[in-house]
Design a protein around this nucleic acid. Sequence first.
RNA 1: CGGGGCGUAGCGCAGAUGGUAGCGCGUCUGGUUUGGGACCAGAAGGCCGCAGGUUCGAAUCCUGUCGCCCCGACCA
Length: 422
Amino acid sequence: MKYSSCFAKTSKTAPADADSANAKFLIQAGFVDQTMAGVYTWLPFGLAVLRKVEQIVREEMNALGALEIFMPSLHPKEFWEATNRWDNVDILFKIHSQTDKDYALGASHEEVVTPLAKKFIESYKNLPFATYQINTKFRDELRAKSGVLRGREFRMKDMYSFHTSQEDLSTFYQKTLEAYVRAYSRCGLNVKVVEASGGIFTKNPSHEFQALTDAGEDTILACSTCEFGQNIEVATVKEGDACPKCGGVISTVKGIEVGNIFDLGTKYSDAFDLNFTDESGERKKVLMGCYGIGTSRLVGAIVEACHDDRGMIWPKSVAPFQVHLVTLNSKDDVVKEQIEGTASDLVRDLEAQGVEVLWDDREDVSPGAKFADADLIGAPLRVIISEKSLKEESVEWKERSSSESRLIKVTDVIADVIEFVK
RNA sequence: CGGGGCGUAGCGCAGAUGGUAGCGCGUCUGGUUUGGGACCAGAAGGCCGCAGGUUCGAAUCCUGUCGCCCCGACCA
């Protein structure tokens, strides 16, 4: 893709009121645009990242055997009344129609998926199964904040599982926990799995997935040596204590909650009378689990964890493109043509190999401005083609995460890039 | 929802004591430039968030209102 063809440009100045790194850089680099408080448009570069994150999550859910569906965001009032959440959930957006009907905008989808499952579950032979969607959620938060970390409209992957026994649910719950850790890891983010409150969902323990960074709004008590961690809301340990698992020291850290899983038990099966017939012909409640990953928040968390003072530093797996190609102008028309020719050949060959390239083809912009934009946008690899490099029959290779650059022969670039993006 | 801050050109900002709006960046034209956000000349671009009020006169004072950000409360 040519930079000049993208309408969403970078800005030299950061937005004045953005405090968090994700808001600052995502807006300044033209990845998102704020429509209103807590609501963002995902622009081409930002959408590319969001899609990659969601695809990774999708692959991990598919690997669990869950099947993807797509549920509506407009919900009938009756579904939310069935769980007493119409009047008791403050964050629920409610809509009144011209035909005098009430609807909710989906803040979550237990109320939709449970009646749905009821249509297909009759006996133990239909169980277990899990289904998920990646969709937009609406929550009337009192205060949106921190860029895409806490919005009123945001993207979320939510999965629901249905079981005949607690053992089966627990097994699936554990497998999901492991799949979540893999998904975050593939997105370039290290997370801590912590014990958390089940909120209004369940009395059973739940687990949160916390990206540990000072920008986080959650307080975590974590062992410095083993994986033990608890959200301060439910913590049975305090700072300085010995870890109950390994004896290490417990310390306080900040985290961004990028996922949460719940053992729902029969909470929703009770509300919607979701039953199955077991082997002996007895009617029993279906056991459910629900599992969420805020995918747009995850993008924000990645920025919080992966940036420096010049801009974002995308992990290869979720970068909007792998290669940021910069061509520098020459006053010599012949050399200029060589530079352009080399660049367009390189773009063509890389794209043929499935490598995504942003080519900064602007002619009226100084080298410094192009470098600053490359640092801001944060593609993993910057490749410069210039008069200087072509004299050595080379391009200049610089990784965003490193301060060193080196020359690579033009004839070797394709192979080296393919190796790099692997 | 309580507390605080801020709304002036696309972005970042300046506009004591009221007199009808300016700077930098960006944009457009022309020219010179080209390895870490180049330079010169010219130009376009504003209902000073919105609504009332005070005044001969309001970006400026008063009242209300809307919006954005931060802290807190809240948070599946």
